[in-house]
Simulated scan of single mutants.
Amino acid sequence: MPDKFVKRPTQGKGDKQPSDSARASLGSQIVSVVDALTALGKLFLVLAVLALLWTKREAVETYALHWLNSANKVGFLGLSVERQISAQQAVAEIAKDAAKVINLAFADGAIERAARNAPAIVGSRILWVDDHPTNNDPERDVLKALGIQVFRVKNTSEAIRFVPVLQPDLIITDVVRDGDQTLPLRKCPAHYFEMPRNVSGNLAELNSDLLQGKTRATGFSLPEAISEVDPSYTDHLTSRILFYSGSAGGRAASQCARLVTNRPDVLLHSIVSALEERNWEKLKQQPSAETKATGK
């Protein structure tokens, strides 16, 4: 059909078609909005990650130290002067508590030992069982300064759940926890040599009740329970359980624990000793003082 007979669409007066430049401008604006939204999303993601790292900064710091020392084999970071000073300051805070007996020079000796044997100390994990965990905040601060990570739970049941997952190097526990479970002490008997502080009664009856799980000293049941989960913690020669108790310290003993003490300085030395024993292979990589001096 000839073109002159084809009916072509007509454009109304109000139907203006966008020009090429207008379409290009609109496309450019859409691209700009998309780019801005993408950048904003990335910013929110970065802020979220930073917020998460800040809330977990203690764990991040400790694991970073652990990784660096493990990768280096000899713990080249050791303990900085700043960390040692921080540990000493935390010890000084403990000394302000009149209820705690501590020899500052003796405690500083433990910090020096930890610094000299940093590869065995830094990055270690401790599970601390206490129904009043904030009572031990200064002690935890000392351990944190030494590069040790402390996980805290309030009772034996929680500890039993944590041990297989966390696999802590050491377990610290108090003695008296009201409402916690008690067990007859068959594998891990405990014994009082003197009556606990602020407790009156008959010592023989107390020890008899203790073995039957009938006292408020529920902490002594923890080694008994742990022995069913992982007996390596309760071997009487290489035990990895320490009791820290104001009432029973120096007045009792557990066959499955390293010690029962109420002294922060003694606890600190025992922690360092236990970690040195457990991680002794990491210390083999350290050059001796003579090697350092001669360079041979």
Rank of each mutant, 00 (worst) to 15 (best):
Gly179Phe: 05
Thr182Ala: 06
Asn207Val: 00
Asn155Arg: 09
Asp137Ser: 14
Arg116His: 04
Ile241Asn: 00
Tyr63Asp: 15
Ser124Val: 05
Cys256Arg: 09
Leu222Gly: 11
Gln88Cys: 07
Leu237Thr: 04
Lys187Met: 02
Thr261Pro: 11
Asp169Val: 06
Leu77Lys: 07
Leu68Gly: 10
Val165Gly: 02
Gly41His: 06
Lys292His: 05
Lys42His: 10
Thr215Asp: 06
Thr291Val: 04
Ser227Thr: 14
Lys7His: 15
Ser157Thr: 09
Val60Pro: 06
Val33Asn: 08
Ile30Cys: 05
Ala145Met: 14
Leu53Pro: 08
Arg240Asn: 14
Lys144Phe: 14
Tyr244Phe: 12
Leu127Trp: 01
Ala107Ser: 05
Lys187Ile: 01
Ser288Glu: 02
Leu50Pro: 00
Cys256Asp: 09
Val101Gly: 02
Asn262His: 13
Ser239Arg: 09
Arg152Val: 11
Ile126Ala: 07
Phe193Ile: 04
Tyr233Phe: 12
Leu65Gly: 15
Ala115Ile: 05
Ala24His: 12
Gln285Trp: 08
Glu224Ser: 02
Ser288Thr: 06
Val74Asp: 02
Glu281Pro: 01
Ala98Phe: 12
Glu228Tyr: 07
Leu267Val: 15
Pro164Gln: 11
Ala225Tyr: 02
Ser232Met: 04
Arg125Ala: 14
Thr173Ser: 10
Trp280Gly: 05
Thr218Gln: 09
Phe44His: 14
Leu222Ile: 13
Lys42Thr: 01
Asp137Pro: 09
Leu166Ile: 06
Glu276Tyr: 01
Met195Ala: 02
Arg23Asn: 01
Thr234Val: 06
Tyr244Trp: 07
Phe44Arg: 13
Glu277Val: 12
Gly249Ile: 03
Trp280Lys: 08
Glu277Gly: 15
Pro164Asp: 12
Gly179Glu: 07
His132Arg: 12
Leu267Arg: 15
Phe162Met: 06
Asp230Val: 09
